[in-house]
Design a protein around this nucleic acid. Structure first.
Lengths: 204, 204
DNA sequence: GTCTATAACGAGATAGAC
DNA sequence: GTCTATCTCGTTATAGAC
């Protein structure tokens, strides 16, 4: 019988997820194999199939865990950040941390592989973006209400732009092996939302 | 002996490139095979190898042709668009046209596959982004000089943000099968650059 | 829960005929 | 320039022993 899953779980299933996650984030879902994971963990391929019957099951589990951790991180931001603009910066920092490990966002990578994914994985990828969008929409709405953020159009559309820009900045920055490139783009993006109109008029 | 390559070339090599391009843009470089292309063109796999000895050669040829066409399109914009802001809109339109065919930007897709690509393909992908960045930097610089565009920081960094945001918006919008999502993001991105400070202050 | 062995298939690539 | 036949390897997955 399974023990209670705890933080820092070192069980085989978790270790499989750890390795598979890194491989998907760096190479994509179609460019890693059970053999890659098994070899790295010094396990046989059938052992992997014992824990995750099919690659589709493994993929779905990867997204579930990634999305759960991401949701935790967002709750963490809500409980520590004080201003809308600092929440935006913390949000961008989540992405920067992933890129610092030479990885793409798991769901950004899977979005590229989207047409080749089994339906359950597709749905989970979309749900990940939906969840991020909902959280960001709340932050942007609150920031506009209290006058600390400024933007045109709906908060929801602006949230979609922020997600897209950060995912794209990760995607491109990885081709340059240059995390600074991502940070500069994120900085400009957030600065444009946080700047007062007066600040924007002239850069003193 | 090869005939002069002309517009609308229907030679076998071009038809192979056409099919392979679409497959890479929709499924990624690692999720399409010579068999896929051969089957669609009713050719055998060895026939494909006659035209492109290896998959790496085919991939390199894909990027070369795509980049050449993209450069042509940028020259077309330069020769028709009158304002910096209309050039930006035309540029975003190039991406929208690709997305309307249910495709990802070829080099955006290859950026996701980057870690698995042969070195020559990697270099060509980076060159594609560099060329776009150089062109956009010129447009942004000119727009700021004549007062029609407004942004903080260097034109180069802003160009990098624009490319990232458009690539990311394509990537995410494809997961939603929703080209309107891309258009809205592109619109907001360009509006933020083209808006006068007064326009931004209040949305009257 | 992990293993060896193997099935069944698809990949990129080559030899050589036409 | 295209073909058939084949090679070699890697892929996901299963059977069944321990």
């Amino acid at each position: 019988m399974a023990t209670v899953v705890r933080r820092g779980d070192t069980g085989t299933a978790e270790r499989i997820l750890d390795v598979a996650e890194r491989l998907v984030q760096t190479k994509g879902f179609n460019a890693f194999s059970y053999a890659d994971v098994a070899g790295e963990l010094r396990l046989s391929k059938p052992s992997l199939h014992y824990h995750f019957a099919s690659k589709a099951d493994l993929g779905a589990a990867l997204i579930d865990r990634y999305a759960a951790r991401f949701a935790d991180a967002l709750r963490g931001i809500d409980s520590t950040a004080t201003t809308s603009s600092s929440k935006l910066r913390d949000y961008a920092h989540l992405y920067a941390d992933v890129l610092d490990q030479q990885r793409m966002c798991l769901c950004g990578m899977l979005a590229a592989d989207f047409d080749t994914l089994p339906a359950p994985m597709r749905r989970s990828v979309v749900r990940f973006f939906d969840d991020s969008e909902a959280w960001l929409t709340g932050v942007l709405d609150a920031g506009r209400s209290d006058g600390t953020l400024h933007f045109a159009g709906s908060a929801r559309e602006q949230a979609q732009l922020v997600i897209s820009a950060l995912e794209g900045a990760m995607l491109v920055a990885r081709s340059y092996h240059d995390a600074a490139r991502f940070r500069a783009a994120a900085e400009h993006l957030i600065a444009a939302l946080a700047a007062t109109p007066a600040t924007r008029r002239s850069r003193r």
